[in-house]
Lab assay of single mutants.
Amino acid sequence: RKEMTAACTPRRRIINLTSVLSLQEEINEQGHEVLREMLHNHSFVGCVNPQWALAQHQTKLYLLNTTKLSEELFYQILIYDFANFGVLRLSEPAPLFDLAMLALDSPESGWTEEDGPKEGLAEYIVEFLKKKAEMLADYFSLEIDEEGNLIGLPLLIDNYVPPLEGLPIFILRLATEVNWDEEKECFESLSKECAMFYSIRKQYISEESTLSGQQSEVPGSIPNSWKWTVEHIVYKALRSHILPPKHFTEDGNILQLANLPDLYKVFERC
């Protein structure tokens, strides 16, 4: 597991931080080997919608929660590849102030007048994250320049770009939802926020969305749709870069829909 690298990086740093090793061990302890084997050997059937997909393993048909699986995938990559990410360069710098204002204007932020003026909160978020810029760049390849612009994001899987519609809320939550006081809790909560931002979430995906850094293989055609990215990038990574937690067998994120021999018997009677 320590050699797990989802995106190509030129050289690998050895990380011996106790906090990170502890988080890696927790993933191992909570892992479910049968689910790992199923995901490793599954045959992708198709997307139901951005949140759900169908896959077959041996004779069984499964309904998989793409949102939760991708979130767990990105969390584990962030923990196992800690401080070893490439950088996704933004085509132009994104001012943190503008991103924070967009987030505060969104109902998702939960902002009320009692929280104070949005401009003041946005300025605080910019200054707060600028103070964390060195650590964010060093460990997470999340790059913020001296003017308070976001200029780079971590490359977690080759050819995958997170849904940038979720970027404003991500920046807001970096400042408000991460435990910045304790090292282990900081790395864990920061990785979880980043994983949620990178995950496939239906509120940020339309039929026209593209999450891939590449064009489709047909010359002159439109960019790959999110469905292509889910199948050929995300579920491909799920084959080798995730140890599913045991609770996925109990919380409805992986559901067995049918045993195909039983279905064949039904059709034979028709």
Score class of each variant (00 low, 15 high):
residue 172 L to W: 03
residue 118 K to F: 15
residue 115 D to T: 12
residue 167 L to N: 00
residue 191 S to P: 01
residue 103 A to Y: 15
residue 173 R to P: 00
residue 36 R to F: 15
residue 241 H to L: 13
residue 128 F to R: 01
residue 248 F to R: 11
residue 153 L to H: 00
residue 162 P to A: 04
residue 15 I to F: 12
residue 95 P to Q: 07
residue 155 L to E: 09
residue 125 I to K: 01
residue 140 F to P: 10
residue 101 M to G: 02
residue 157 I to Q: 06
residue 45 V to I: 04
residue 193 E to C: 12
residue 12 R to G: 10
residue 52 W to T: 10
residue 182 E to F: 14
residue 148 G to N: 05
residue 161 V to H: 03
residue 84 N to Q: 11
residue 260 L to F: 05
residue 18 T to N: 08
residue 86 G to Y: 14
residue 110 G to Y: 03
residue 77 I to N: 13
residue 49 N to G: 09
residue 105 D to L: 03
residue 158 D to E: 05
residue 184 K to Q: 08
residue 79 I to E: 15
residue 118 K to H: 15
residue 58 Q to M: 10
residue 99 L to K: 00
residue 142 L to F: 12
residue 40 H to E: 08
residue 96 L to D: 00
residue 171 I to F: 14
residue 37 E to H: 11
residue 21 L to Q: 07
residue 42 H to G: 12
residue 198 Y to N: 05
residue 17 L to S: 03
residue 13 R to E: 13
residue 143 E to S: 06
residue 248 F to I: 08
residue 173 R to G: 15
residue 91 S to E: 09
residue 126 V to N: 03
residue 242 I to W: 14
residue 168 P to L: 00
residue 27 I to S: 13
residue 166 G to A: 08
residue 104 L to W: 02
residue 29 E to Q: 11
residue 116 G to K: 02
residue 12 R to P: 10
residue 43 S to L: 10
residue 87 V to H: 05
residue 107 P to W: 14
residue 181 D to K: 02
residue 147 E to Q: 06
residue 75 Y to T: 12
residue 84 N to S: 08
residue 128 F to I: 02
residue 64 L to G: 01
residue 226 W to F: 06
residue 167 L to T: 02
residue 87 V to S: 06
residue 131 K to V: 13
residue 125 I to S: 03
residue 57 H to A: 09
residue 149 N to S: 04
residue 172 L to V: 02
residue 36 R to M: 14
residue 102 L to D: 12
residue 232 H to P: 01
residue 98 D to K: 04
residue 43 S to V: 09
residue 206 S to T: 06
residue 191 S to W: 03
residue 17 L to E: 04
residue 33 E to K: 12
residue 144 I to D: 01
residue 75 Y to C: 12
residue 215 Q to A: 08
residue 53 A to R: 00
residue 143 E to P: 03
residue 60 K to Q: 11
residue 47 C to N: 09
residue 13 R to D: 14
residue 44 F to Y: 12
residue 219 P to F: 12
residue 158 D to P: 06
residue 58 Q to Y: 14
residue 153 L to G: 00
residue 266 V to F: 15
residue 185 E to I: 03
residue 111 W to S: 15
residue 147 E to K: 03
residue 233 I to K: 05
residue 125 I to M: 07
residue 86 G to D: 14
residue 98 D to I: 14
residue 129 L to K: 01
residue 205 I to V: 07
residue 140 F to Y: 05
residue 129 L to S: 01
residue 141 S to M: 12
residue 194 C to M: 12
residue 38 M to Y: 14
residue 192 K to V: 11
residue 144 I to T: 02
residue 6 A to V: 08
residue 122 A to D: 00
residue 238 L to W: 13
residue 250 E to R: 12
residue 181 D to Y: 09
residue 128 F to Q: 01
residue 227 K to V: 06
residue 77 I to F: 14
residue 20 V to A: 12
residue 235 Y to K: 10
residue 247 H to V: 11
residue 153 L to F: 04
residue 91 S to V: 12
residue 125 I to Y: 01
residue 129 L to E: 01
residue 62 Y to R: 02
residue 48 V to L: 03
residue 145 D to F: 01
residue 59 T to P: 13
residue 96 L to N: 00
residue 140 F to H: 04
residue 82 F to E: 04
residue 141 S to F: 13
residue 65 N to G: 04
residue 79 I to V: 07
residue 241 H to D: 13
residue 28 N to V: 08
residue 15 I to W: 15
residue 107 P to Y: 14
residue 169 I to F: 09
residue 200 I to N: 10
residue 251 D to F: 13
residue 98 D to S: 05
residue 109 S to T: 14
residue 169 I to P: 14
